[in-house]
Design a binder for these strands. Structure first.
Lengths: 340, 340
DNA sequence: CTTCTTTTTGCAACCGGTTGCAAAAAGAAA
DNA sequence: TTTCTTTTTGCAACCGGTTGCAAAAAGAAG
């Protein structure tokens, strides 16, 4: 039968040590004015009693909760497991605690802001490649330090963004396909509302505009998921002549597409080329072996955490965009470049 | 330039409405003793000022933070993305906020307890199929309501457990393989320290003990991951005669094993059978099509949240185990049962 | 219009800490 | 030993709310 013991408070420790509460408080604060003797006495009493300070109570006076809102709506893309893993670890390393907020049902920025303000989070990380910049702006407008990771950047940012230039990634994919000599190429995006899809598509189209001889087409899957990619590719197969190669907006879409192609008896890369995006763990599985464009997830997250920490000290820090290069990861789903 | 406005407090609202702070506090509390007129007056002032109550400050007096620690060390198994998605949503639905704790680096129970107690979480959900029951017990001993989801259960529990009977799952797998007429079977587990691996192996062995004619062997992958499954199967192939079918401790191991088998030119299910565990989304992808045993994740999580909510009202609630049945999901990686 | 109930309101103490300020203690200099 | 500095300590107010209690207001009954 577990006893319901009242938690040990500062006052209990003060009583036991026979000192004032301020002394105890100071003993637990680095750099406070306390003698060694006092500190030892307090620490003794505290450990006797099993005391640990209440972070929430102290936040009342210090104005710091060390709570960071981690907001996302990407709970279906396997890549985000890694994203959560890294964010939680790196935040923990800095002594911060992530307060998770799942936006899958509720996308309203103001509701999200209100909910997180109730818990007086010190800052917020919006980890999403689909939410518009306005979403993150709502936090800034509410006076909450915010970093938008994996989000759309602006050259005149009013909110901190850390990620990649998705339109450059689109260009990179297009360049690669053109270099491989494909005469017709397709873009198979995720949902058209996702900023990452829009940006990758824009870059892809820009690059192709330089090559009027290459035929192009595009379509959008309903979702960043295996099923959506598979369904979309099945539709393309049914609807008529395929492009020679496709840039899929995400690896998970690519893998769905590959499965549809295999079912249709089409060989990749002989009959058709596929290039994905994200370089998720599965992409390098030998039975998938997907050529793709990878983004440096760990660096992006590391940098995001660094930035939010910096903002805790200077909430009005001048807005900044941090971009990292994407990398082509060549595997087995594109045909080799033609010999010149 | 964002202005650094001091957040609006209860007192501000009270001043503006010309009433006492208690009146404002009560206006924001359901079922408190307030007249309609007063409530309207306060609400007007509050919305003029954009006030929303500070959940942390109120937690000081009420003793409720509505914070739930969500503790896990499974940040590499794709199935856990779904687990996090469901937990965060269901907790949010109940007005609770998940405080995430990643145990990947730090496995010490007492440290975890201390860290979460600092934030006075109302309860903790330990979502892990690998941590021993003692881990969860540490929370209970510290007086923190705890539910261990996906964990090992005991018939004399001292901590709430919601999940499946992993040893029954092992028996189920063994029965299935025997029924299919395999003359030799293997168990390929995850890390030997994981309770789920131990339990599934125990059940598997128990069932096989009833069939002395069936040859058996077992081994353990270093990790619940594709790479570990692949490496382990490669080792098995290299080391000598394979069993006719394997029960892999997790789908992601199975998929790794499948990839190794494909490389070795072995056809599944013709040359060798594989049965996995978890029925993760990928298992039903057409290019994988894995026969597996599924656990009812959504029900487990729903029930876990229900239970933790109940414990908030009654922290000394008598410990209870809630088990859900696993289900065979037949796909294409086992040969058909022999005709009688 | 009284008198008695019931509802609504404000006062003030409290939740678990922090911190500015002044008093006390310790140390240095004379 | 006295005087001046510097360090250490405790007092008390405060952070943003909640809540028991008693006073005030409103309503019901006579």
């Amino acid at each position: 039968m577990p006893m319901m013991t009242r938690p040990v408070t500062l006052k209990d420790v003060a009583n036991r040590a026979g000192v004032s509460t301020s002394a105890v408080s100071r003993a637990f604060t680095d750099g406070a004015s306390v003698s060694d003797k006092m500190r030892r006495k307090v620490e003794k009493a505290a450990s006797d009693l099993g005391y640990s300070p209440n972070a929430l109570a102290s936040s009342l006076t210090t104005g710091r909760t060390k709570l960071i809102g981690l907001v996302s709506n990407n709970f279906h893309n396997p890549i985000f497991l890694q994203v959560f893993d890294l964010f939680t670890r790196k935040l923990q390393d800095k002594g911060l605690r992530p307060l998770l907020m799942n936006l899958s049902d509720e996308q309203d920025a103001l509701t999200a802001v209100r909910r997180l303000k109730q818990y007086s989070v010190d800052g917020v990380i919006v980890a999403s490649s689909t939410l518009p910049p306005e979403f993150s702006k709502a936090f800034r407008d509410a006076g909450v330090p915010v970093v938008n990771s994996f989000g759309r950047f602006s050259t005149t940012p009013d909110v901190h963004v850390v990620g990649v230039d998705n339109s450059e990634c689109g260009r990179m994919a297009a360049r690669e396909l053109v270099a491989r000599g494909y005469a017709s190429v397709g873009f198979m995006g995720g949902p058209e509302t996702a900023t990452s899809t829009q940006d990758r598509f824009r870059g892809f189209s820009q690059e192709l505009a330089k090559h009027p001889d290459v035929a192009r087409r595009h379509s959008f899957a309903s979702d960043y998921s295996f099923d959506a990619g598979r369904a979309e590719m099945q539709r393309l197969i049914a609807d008529g002549p395929l492009a020679e190669a496709y840039f899929c907006g995400d690896d998970v879409l690519s893998i769905g597409a590959l499965s549809a192609l295999a079912d249709a008896g089409l060989n990749v890369p002989r009959d058709i080329g596929i290039i994905g995006f994200n370089d998720m763990e599965m992409a390098r599985w030998e039975n998938i072996n997907l050529t793709t464009i990878g983004q440096p997830i760990e660096q992006i997250i590391h940098s995001s955490v660094e930035l939010i920490v910096a903002m805790l000290d200077d909430p009005n820090r001048y807005p900044e965009v941090r971009l990292f290069p994407c990398k082509m990861v060549e595997r087995g789903t594109l045909r080799p470049a033609p010999k010149p």
